[in-house]
Amino acid sequence: MQITQILFLIFAAIILGSAFKVVTTKKMIHAAFWLIVTLFGVAALYAMLNAGFMAMVQIVVYVGAIAILFIFAIMLTRKELLDSAAPLNKNWTVAALFALLSFSGLFTLLNNWRGFANTAPELSADMDTITELGTALVTPNAYLLPFEVASVLLLAALIGAVYVANEAKSE
């Protein structure tokens, strides 16, 4: 086994284990911290693929902003609402069945897919992926429209947040 494979297995185990803890742990805030472990694991996978930009974006956006937002949200809710209910309810057998079914479905689908055998094209050592990405983002034939739509989407998110917060404030 290659060293990268061992590393991949370690990170995959960390991601799966912490994701499992997110849904089973009883304290909400612990779930948030386990989620952060998961996100770091994903960032490590990106770094292993030499996708440094994606790894850093993963940490800056998900760990630095979204996880903090989660923690703020948890701390804002009253304690009586949290920590009391068990993480499992009585329908868990049905849920497990559906999870198993969808897993086996995906497994059969992906097992017959030949894409796994393809290897990624080798990048030349002096290729600057960030410049390529930046060029692609503003070239009309490439991703210019999604790039500008992204800003409109962010604007909509901001306006929505302001609207909801205003409503909550006036109540």
């Binding site: 930009f53 600057d128 960030i130 410049t131 390529e132 990405l133 930046g134 060029t135 983002l137 503003v138 790039f147 992204a150 800003s151």
Partner: peptide
């Protein structure tokens, strides 16, 4: 989003 734009 702006970082790749700034580099290129």
């Amino acid at each position: 989003f702006l970082f790749p734009w700034a580099v290129a």
